[in-house]
Write a protein that binds this DNA or RNA. Structure first.
Length: 467
RNA sequence: GAUGGUGUAGCUCAGUUGGUUAGAGCGCCAGAUUGUGGUUCUGGAGGUCGCGGGUUCGAGACCCGUCAUUGUCCCCA
């Protein structure tokens, strides 16, 4: 091996101690809220069989799956014809496993495999990385973490309402005071497609109108025309371009507009019921917006859909994309052989939340976990004297370490300074003789002598103050 | 899949119409200070200028190719 500059694959990142402190801060807040709402933890393997993953995220999704080369002789049984069929088709001869693409599908797989033992309705949360082989951009990575919470085994809209409540709590506990939770329902979108005479064209319709807030009315119409929607359909679609108004007004308009579509009517009813729950739970309705142009990409949603964006100073959404999204899916377990299990879930994107919080300056100071007490190392004798004390400090619950080499004190203190260790115990010949140790406060620079017991005593006090 | 930008010291970057020995700041190491960090001062180390080819008397700079990286579109967290 020649000398090579080390690197990591694009779209992936290392997380150093400072970043980890902040990321764990986010994870902890989300986990706490999930647990408070009765969700239980689940982890699934990094690798799933491709048969589990394929075909569940649309055609694009299949291409974004990371496929793992079969172990052993992966060319075994591969014919020249297979290779001639092109890399896309040949890939499935060479690979039968892939990296998980999201947490919902593995969860559905788990539910089906364990249906006999689970207590329904089953609530689980899952915090793990997922992988997507797409082109990285700002706020988009190839490896990123998702924090999912789902309920399966009930179609009660109370679950949707609880998701709305959890979004409020998570945002609140992270200090993201200003956010917008957009809600829509796939049945409404289906109803719209039926109403404008474009039933069956939901896919392209959703994709186009989802861009409304990004590219505007004209471009959306243009795209629809290109995708084969008739002028008549586009004319009937006009109500969707009305500016967002009060939720109540939107309801009334919708009811009117979609009166001829039973599916649409059901969507409106579901939304109305969800809104009643939201009111009964006393949630802040100002942050919730019914937005009939919200579509979301994942094809498996069948009912309510959610999306959360952070709002920055001046009421402008933070340009990082949505930080959370979710919805209801009725048929996810069906393709694994279990019918009639409806589920609804939410997912927070930690990486984007991190970027948002960084941009808005919402992280508390000094979350980095570090040593609280450093023992200096003068020589072998002092080292032997200090080792039992070091262990006592640790037993007392103090994050402590001893400098491993008997180098110059300057270097040891420099180390403490860089690592932001707040206290240093100096033990040399004088301290050993008298039993009076020198405790140096690195913040103030002050130094006092005291017996070791008193050092520990100090820390009890300081711990309460979160040194 | 389409399309822009950027690759020079550990990091962030400068480098004039192509012209001598490629620079700065920060960081690193040592000393001033043999038991005292953060400040200061002094000294020092560190570069196949992403890689390959071409133009030229001469290339970090210009041309071609290539790789890496970053952003945008599509799509998505």
């Amino acid at each position: 091996m020649t000398n090579q500059k080390p690197s990591i694959p694009r779209g992936t990142r290392d997380f150093g101690p400072d970043q980890m402190a902040r990321r764990n801060y986010i994870f902890d807040k989300i986990r706490t809220v999930y647990q408070r709402y009765g969700f239980q933890p689940l982890e699934t393997p990094t690798l799933e069989n491709l048969s589990v993953l394929m075909g569940r995220y649309g055609e694009e999704g299949d291409q974004l799956l990371y496929k793992v080369l079969n172990t052993g002789d992966f060319l075994n049984g591969v014919t020249p014809q297979d290779l001639e069929a092109g890399s896309k088709k040949a890939a499935y001869k060479l690979s039968e496993k892939g990296l998980r693409y999201d947490l919902t599908v593995p969860f559905a797989r788990y539910v089906v495999m364990n249906r006999g033992e689970l207590t329904f309705p089953f609530r689980r949360y899952q915090i793990q990385p997922v992988w997507r082989a797409d082109r990285p951009q700002k706020g988009r990575y190839r490896e990123f973490y998702q924090c999912d919470a789902d309920v399966v085994g009930t179609d009660s809209l109370l679950c949707e309402a609880e998701i709305v409540a959890m979004v409020h709590e998570v945002m609140g506990s992270l200090g993201i005071r200003d956010f917008c939770l957009k809600i829509n329902n796939r049945k409404i979108l289906t109803g719209i497609a039926e109403t404008i005479g474009a039933a069956g064209l939901e896919g392209p319709l959703f994709v186009a109108i989802d861009k409304l807030d990004k590219i505007g009315k004209e471009k959306v119409e243009e795209e629809l025309r290109e995708r084969g929607f008739s002028d008549n359909s586009i004319r009937k679609l006009q109500p969707i371009f009305r500016p967002l108004s009060s939720n109540r007004e939107m309801f009334e308009n919708l009811q009117d507009w979609l009166h001829a579509s039973p599916t649409g009517q059901r969507g409106v009813e579901e939304l109305a019921k969800l809104w009643r729950f939201i009111k009964q739970m006393g949630l802040n309705e100002k942050k919730i917006q019914l937005d009939i142009s919200l579509a979301r990409g994942l094809s498996y949603y069948t009912g309510a859909i959610f999306e959360v964006k952070a709002i920055g100073p001046g009421g402008v959404p933070v340009q990082i994309g949505s930080i959370s999204g979710g919805g209801r899916y009725d048929n996810l377990t069906e393709s694994f052989g279990l019918k009639g299990v409806s589920g609804v879930g939410i997912s927070f994107g930690v990486d984007r939340i991190y970027d948002v919080m960084e941009e808005l300056g919402l992280f508390p100071e000094n979350q980095t976990i570090t040593t609280k007490l450093l023992f200096t190392n003068f020589d072998a004798e002092a080292e032997a004297y200090a080792l039992p004390l070091l262990q006592r400090a640790r037993q007392a619950g103090i994050n402590a370490e001893m400098y491993p080499d008997a180098t110059k004190l300057k270097k040891q203190l420099d180390y403490a300074d860089r690592k932001r260790i707040p206290f240093v115990v100096l033990i040399g010949s004088e301290e050993m003789k008298s039993g009076q140790l020198s405790l140096k406060n690195m913040t103030t620079g002050e130094q006092e002598t005291m017996p070791f017991d008193e050092v520990l005593g100090r820390f009890e006090k300081f711990e309460g103050l979160k040194v």
